[in-house]
Design a binder for these strands. Structure first.
Lengths: 220, 220
DNA sequence: GTAATAGTGTCTCTCAGACAGTATGTC
DNA sequence: GACATACTGTCTGAGAGACACTATTAC
């Protein structure tokens, strides 16, 4: 009871896919500490109104970026006396995925996208948070339908394969990929076709169970 | 700044292996809330002295149970207005593994072991925390050397296989198990033998890199 | 010797990568 | 027609489960 409370915040790593590259949302800080520096969307935990840290992450994301992320998962809790110059702090970090079409439609002023391959120095320990989020995304992509959340609701198999290749960081064999998708059975065909510009159109698909993340027994 | 702080605590799920069964450490609460009820070892975050939540978890475990757990990993952060009757609270949960010989040598007064298969009702949301810790342990055992932390520093392959079977919750084939261990190459033979009571003695092994958890590409 | 546990060898089936081959669009 | 991309079929090699086999102890 008598212990001095930690500064308790929420930070969110919001990923999206633009031009075949994984990007994340950063904001320039207005107030101290680190004014003008880039940082993850984040803010204080509101114990008066937030139902839990997950709700706080949703609220923060909406307030700062105007995005309702379809996928949001707790990442890790970072803490210590030195990560915030104001004092001992604790940040519950989340990561979120959103498709670029939803992001570009709705994003707020001041929201900027940065490729994960060439990130600037960020405020607090946010580079460390991003590194862990990236690792989680890469690892989890290989055994789940997570990359689907980076695509629009309708997509082609070549697009999905490219997305898996980007998140996992390695090339996949087309034949094996499709074979496994077929066995895993979490996609369904949409009647219409998709014209990929200059060549043979590709079949459009959507995920069967829109709501839930699929976890697989083995790697994709 | 002006936000009312959450009650910030640390809870630790400490697993061990006794009589071929996974057990965890519980303590009877002395103070309110939930006096007399069983709960996980836990306590307040000390921002004056703790270097981070991990250090707080180590300290809590040592104070409450007198155990220095060789393996300690952050599990999840639980939060909300209703999990603690005193108000909006946030608990950073960790899980830890210790071998029974270390545990029984050093454990403090009041420490009681309960099999994970028949747990009583616990204080706060601690049943939920235990459930998540169990799931993490089960999942991670299949692709890591995690179960080694439940054994003494020297062990036989039949003992190790039994441990994997208990944490993973399924039987393993002896031949496949040994083949994979050989390929993964994280164990080393100890010269002496081990007399398992009445029959052929088994070779003793130890983990090669004592310090670090090994993560495998594929399942064990 | 038998019983019991430790440890090894081999067969087979499944699955994933490799890659060739076919289909369908634009130009 | 050429070309590019979408999609499918087949071969092969690696790995895991099944299970029989040998080895070494106690009795």
């Amino acid at each position: 009871m008598a212990y001095k409370p930690a500064i308790t915040t929420i930070d969110v790593v919001l990923f999206t896919l633009v031009d075949e590259a994984l990007q994340l949302v950063l904001l320039a800080r207005e107030d101290a500490p680190f004014p003008g520096m880039l940082a993850l969307p984040g803010g204080y935990l509101h114990t008066e109104s937030d139902a839990d840290t997950r709700a706080a992450a949703r609220r923060t994301l909406e307030q700062k970026t105007n995005i309702k992320a379809p996928y949001l998962e707790q990442l890790y809790t970072f803490s210590g006396p030195d990560r915030d110059p104001r004092g001992w702090s604790l940040s519950v970090a989340y990561y979120a995925l959103v498709s670029e079409d939803v992001l570009s439609l709705r994003k707020a002023e001041g929201v900027a996208l940065y490729s994960v391959d060439c990130l600037p120095e960020l405020a607090f320990d946010h580079n460390e948070i991003v590194a862990m989020a990236l690792k989680r995304l890469r690892d989890k992509s290989s055994y789940s339908s997570l990359p689907c959340y980076l695509l629009p609701s309708e997509f082609t198999l070549p697009e999905l394969q490219a997305t898996y290749e980007i998140t996992m960081g390695c090339k996949l064999d087309k034949s094996s990929f499709r074979r496994k998708l077929d066995e895993l059975d979490f996609l369904e065909i949409i009647a219409g076709n998709f014209k990929a510009g200059k060549h043979r159109p590709a079949q459009l698909y959507r995920v069967r169970k829109e709501k839930s993340l699929m976890l697989f027994d083995r790697t994709v």
